[in-house]
Write a protein that binds this DNA or RNA. Structure first.
Length: 891
DNA sequence: CATATCACG
DNA sequence: ACGTACGTGATATGC
């Protein structure tokens, strides 16, 4: 039995995998599909062959890839897709981590390396398998050299196998003759000229008959067809050159030590860590426990009160001039305990007294938890620096006041990488070089915290240890990182103080009239029932109007309505499609009304009702680490999308009311994004338009369409307004034409006129794109960054999208920065001036304050001062402000 | 769990 | 020849 060696054509297999799989990315935004596909092919081959030796060969330079199957017809080489290029170093890293031999040598193509090793290995008595997606390698097939070509199919990976005899069976020629066929036929993708007029058929026939180009040349007068005879004579030198180009070297001057190719343990710790980072979850099952445990951090469980007190005292002493890290473990309003660290190896979990299982509210337990938090608060108060996981929650629970010493790891990581879906501690640990830690899920499985703590205490202490260690040890790393990225001020002076402002807003919540909400819901129900009946009557049957699928069938099949537009899954029934049909088909306008009403009922009337807490108020959560641009978001419930544009929806704002003795004051910035644009671009015309206190959309209309201000009709003003919006979004003629229902040409003309009116805006936006292409970042006035990986995509659409992001993010982000500053200052001033009025909500460019009746004037003063002077721009920041006895009135 | 739709800035 | 406006979150449906 011969020993086996497997040789892999690295770039070729990577390429195959890349085109065979949909795009995959990990949390860092790295593209991983090619690496993943490569590994799947690798593991499949290894399982089938059980080889002794393995080597992967790469070309040293791979600036281009031969897309034979994809664009051979163009006879060109495309530059390698960026998404694929990124994965070349990655696969090498993976292979190294698994201890797999990589061969590459300057001056040689991977083919030559494979050819040489394969030939030598066969001579030395090995059985050889060469894995490649490239049929050129078939010339290497021999008695003991098998060429294997994987095909990614729907059903998985299938592999075509060729020994020498299989090549003859399939192509009529031997592997050696295969070279001659190619020499005649040529290969545009490989820059092999071949002989003109000879294609695959003729080439094969000639070589079947004569065995080689040399022999064919000797009989050149007899060749058929005559064209072949004539051209081979004429292009003989070119044929000889082609043969040379097509020949894979089998005696390349490479030093190759078979011992280095011997397969060892593939499933190493390094490989495990890398697979984790790349999020190859399926492949992680292949590892056993020895690979998984890299570092272990444990919390020491403290249940005894005296011991807890001793530890808190020690922590207090140790952190007087030093860092304290903590995390409050809670579940459903119940504090289970407090994890604290006062050094990297001094981590404890102080368990709160258990709440009795029988009684839902256990006053003793509650008092105990409060006492624990109170003690923690004192340690926090005296600590020099404090890092807390979920800082905002802690601020709410212990009513902490802002001091510059606080640190929130999730927010630090968010500033460094704002595109991630979430910020779990293990990502923070890996990003700050603290190692690959097991996730909460991996340590505990899917159970509740309370259950895990009780029934799996050991693992729970490991989970907390990992979380807390990360919270403690990441601080110094991020401080350096933020300094280096010039985001230190942004973090310390904007995001951290904001945590405290948001905590206060969430804690206050907003009062909602539950009964009125219910009445509103019932009102809607009645109207919905009427519409429902009418729609069924017209349709002639009952169906689920809320199902786009069923609705599409009814409208576009049964009722044969025109202009059916398709989505992936069926007909589009989106509002913009239906609106075009509404005036001709009453049923469509009823459907639109129905949609509106059911939306109001389910999301707002009924949805909000379930969110009213026992204090009669709704406490939203403001997310500080979600958006790519630096805006906030609001969840459970979302109070940033309460209806306002349509009257019936707007009415719902009447249920949001101030407490007795208070009024609402609502202030919103007037076109803050356009003003930011005017400032950042420095366009004199736009700045001047604002300085002369004109209505900006009318002024734009007048200038862009060359008509006097007085003659700007509402319609023309609307168009100008759409253009202004478009500019902020990163304008495209298509988008604008859609929005205004005009042709692309007209939209293009509007844009052209706009840029002629405000020339510096064009320069500015082009500059933003150029900078983003160079730095791969969009950046705000305050230094907030957003990576724009779309700009390096191989896909034109994606790159186009990247350009719009590059234009929009600095504008939207700067506006978001400014209102954050305003929020902090308004909040801090209300507190400093010892007012009872409080900030409740932020809706991107709007703040809502619940003002004590007697403080109304003072509050208005504070709002206008702090909002208008949050940033000093070359145009004034103006606000609109209203007060009222509910949100409807105040807006 | 993904998709379509629609509410907001 | 393509097929897009920027940023979010909640709900209902249907696989």
């Amino acid at each position: 039995m011969r020993k086996k060696i497997v040789l892999i054509d690295g770039h070729s297999i990577l390429n195959r995998a890349f085109f065979g799989l949909p795009d995959l990315t990990n949390a860092e935004g790295l593209h991983t599909n090619a690496v993943y596909g490569f590994l799947n092919i690798l593991f499949k081959v290894l399982e089938e062959e059980q080889p002794e030796y393995l080597t992967v060969a790469f070309d040293v330079h791979a600036p281009t890839f031969r897309h034979k199957m994809y664009d051979a017809y163009k006879g060109t080489r495309k530059p390698m897709a960026e998404e694929l290029r990124q994965q070349v170093p990655l696969i090498k890293q993976v292979l190294e981590a698994m201890g797999i031999k990589i061969m590459e040598k300057e001056g040689y193509e991977a083919d030559d390396i494979l050819g040489t090793i394969a030939t030598t290995a066969q001579e030395e008595g090995l059985e050889v398998s060469v894995i490649s997606g490239d049929r050129d390698l078939l010339q290497l097939a021999d008695e003991h050299i098998q060429i294997r070509i994987p095909k990614t199919k729907m059903t998985g990976t299938e592999i075509e196998n060729y020994y020498a005899k299989d090549v003859v069976a399939r192509y009529q020629v031997s592997p050696k003759e295969f070279i001659d066929v190619k020499a005649l036929q040529g290969d545009t993708a490989d820059n092999i000229p071949g002989v003109p007029g000879i294609g695959e058929k003729t080439a094969t026939n000639l070589i079947v008959q004569y065995g080689s180009i040399e022999n064919a040349y000797e009989h050149v007068e007899e060749l058929k067809p005559p064209r072949a005879s004539k051209n081979l004579k004429e292009f003989w030198q070119q044929a000889v050159l082609s043969k040379d180009l097509a020949t894979i070297r089998t005696r390349a001057d490479i030093s190759y030590d078979l011992k280095e190719a011997k397969l060892g343990e593939l499933y190493t710790q390094e490989a495990y860590a890398l697979f984790q980072r790349l999020e190859f979850k399926n492949l992680l099952n292949r590892f056993d426990d020895s690979a998984k445990v890299v570092t272990k951090h444990e919390c020491v469980l403290i249940q005894n009160k005296d011991e807890a007190a001793a530890i808190l005292a020690k922590a207090k002493e140790a952190t007087k001039d030093d860092l304290l890290a903590f995390y409050i473990v809670q579940e459903e309003q119940q504090v289970l305990g407090v994890a604290i660290a006062y050094a990297k190896d001094q981590m404890f979990f102080l368990q709160a007294q258990e709440v009795g299982q029988m009684s839902f509210f256990d006053d003793d337990a509650r008092a105990d938890a409060l006492e624990l938090l109170n003690q923690l608060k004192q340690v926090i108060a005296s600590a020099a620096k404090v890092s807390a996981f979920h800082l905002k929650e802690a601020v709410k629970m212990m009513q902490l006041r802002y001091q510059p010493k606080y640190f929130d790891p999730e927010i630090a990581e968010y500033l460094c990488n704002p595109l991630k879906k979430s910020y779990p501690y293990e990502d923070i640990a890996s990003q700050t070089g603290l190692g690959m830690l097991p996730t909460k899920n991996e340590t505990l499985g899917k159970t509740s915290d309370a259950k895990a703590l009780k029934e799996d205490t050991g693992h729970y202490m490991t989970y907390l240890g990992n979380l807390l260690y990360t919270t403690y040890a990441c601080v110094s790393v991020y401080e350096e990182k933020l300094k280096k990225e010039k985001m230190q001020k942004l973090f310390e002076e904007m995001e951290m103080p904001l945590v405290f402002t948001l905590a206060s807003m969430e804690k206050w919540g907003i009062k909602v009239k539950a009964e009125e909400l219910k009445a509103y819901s019932q009102q809607l129900s009645e109207k919905i029932a009427v519409l429902e009946k009418e729609i069924y009557a017209i349709a002639g049957e009952e169906f689920n109007i809320n199902s786009p699928k069923q609705l599409g069938v009814i409208l576009f099949e049964k009722m044969q309505l025109p202009n059916a537009k398709k989505t992936k899954t069926g007909y589009s029934t989106a509002a913009d499609v239906l609106e075009k049909l509404a005036k001709d088909y009453p049923v469509v306008s009823k459907v639109l009304d129905y949609r509106q009403l059911t939306k109001l009922k389910s999301t707002y009337a009924d949805g909000l009702a379930t969110c009213i807490a026992s204090d009669g108020r709704i406490h939203t959560t403001f997310q500080q680490t979600v958006t790519a641009t630096g805006r906030l978001s609001s969840t459970e419930p979302n109070l940033q999308n309460i209806p306002v544009r349509i009257e019936l929806g707007r009415l719902i704002r009447k249920v949001f009311v101030p407490e007795d003795g208070y009024v609402f004051v609502d202030a919103d910035y007037s076109q803050i994004e356009l003003r930011v644009l005017a400032h950042m671009s420095g366009d004199e015309n736009l700045i001047e338009a604002y300085k002369s206190a004109q209505d900006i959309h009318t002024a734009t209309a007048s200038k862009v369409f060359h008509i006097p201000m007085e003659e700007v009709t509402p319609q023309i003003r609307r168009n100008a307004k759409a253009v202004n919006f478009g500019i902020v979004y990163g304008i495209s003629s298509f988008g604008l034409s859609q929005d205004l229902s005009i042709t692309r040409q007209e939209a293009q003309e509007y844009i052209k006129q706009y840029f002629e009116t405000y020339p510096k805006i064009k320069t500015f936006l082009d500059g933003l794109v150029e900078d983003a292409v160079n730095t791969r970042m969009a950046i705000t006035m305050y230094g907030r960054k957003r990576p724009v990986p779309e700009l390096s995509s191989g896909n034109y659409m994606q790159r186009q999208f990247g350009e719009r992001i590059a234009m929009n993010s600095p504008i939207q982000g700067t506006a978001a920065d400014i209102i954050k500053i305003a929020m902090i200052r308004v909040d801090q001033r209300l507190k400093k001036e010892k007012l009872q009025s409080r900030l409740l909500l932020q809706v991107h460019d709007e703040l809502l304050i619940e003002a004590k009746q007697e403080e109304l004037e003072q509050v208005k003063q504070i709002l206008s001062e702090e909002m208008e002077h949050a940033a000093e721009l070359s145009v004034k920041l103006e606000i609109d402000m209203h007060s009222g006895n509910n949100w409807y009135e105040a807006k």
